[in-house]
């Protein structure tokens, strides 16, 4: 095997990824060729810059933090929160509109009524000035009138 062919396979050789006849050919060439052996050493040295880096282990607290953040930020949660906000705003708006409407009606009603006494109650002959209306008494009077 020539130098050019060996150099193409040097990294695979170094990584232990060669087998069989190719492995034997490259090994035999390296034993005999100083330049290719030097190139192998140079590549090993540069690759060595990426070796031996420390490992790190985390703890469950890190996972918990992420799960908690996810719970607050996940799209479904955000959509639900948006729906809740919209529902609250809608309810508040509807309430305000109802109050405004009721207020307007009440003002209009009072403006039409005769001053002094509530119009509706006088129509039925009930005089609020006589005191609290007693339902039982009124029922008794009605029965007497009927009979």
């Amino acid at each position: 095997m020539q130098c050019q062919g060996v150099r193409r396979l040097l990294d695979e050789y170094r990584d232990g990824e060669l087998a069989g006849a190719r492995l034997q050919q490259v090994a035999a060439h390296l034993a005999a060729c100083r330049e290719c052996a030097g190139e192998l050493g140079r590549r090993e040295a540069i690759s060595g810059l990426l070796h031996g880096w420390d490992q790190a282990g985390g703890d469950a607290a890190l996972t918990e933090r992420v799960v908690s953040l996810w719970g607050a930020r996940r799209p479904g949660q955000q959509r639900a929160a948006r729906r809740r906000r919209m529902a609250t705003l809608f309810a508040a708006g509807a309430g305000a509109a109802a109050l405004t409407g009721a207020g307007t009606l009440a003002v209009a009603h009072l403006a039409k009524a005769p001053r002094g006494r509530p119009a509706g109650l006088h129509a039925h002959g009930w005089d609020m000035e006589d005191g609290p209306w007693d339902a039982a008494e009124a029922f008794g009077a009605a029965r007497e009138r009927g009979s």
Partner: peptide
């Protein structure tokens, strides 16, 4: 589907490998 325990289990499995990568 939003199940926190399933997510926790997945993250626990990848956490150390990712932390090591980040540390390196």
């Amino acid at each position: 589907a939003g199940e926190g325990s399933a997510l926790r289990s997945l993250l626990d499995e990848i956490r150390d490998r990712i932390l090591t990568l980040c540390f390196r």
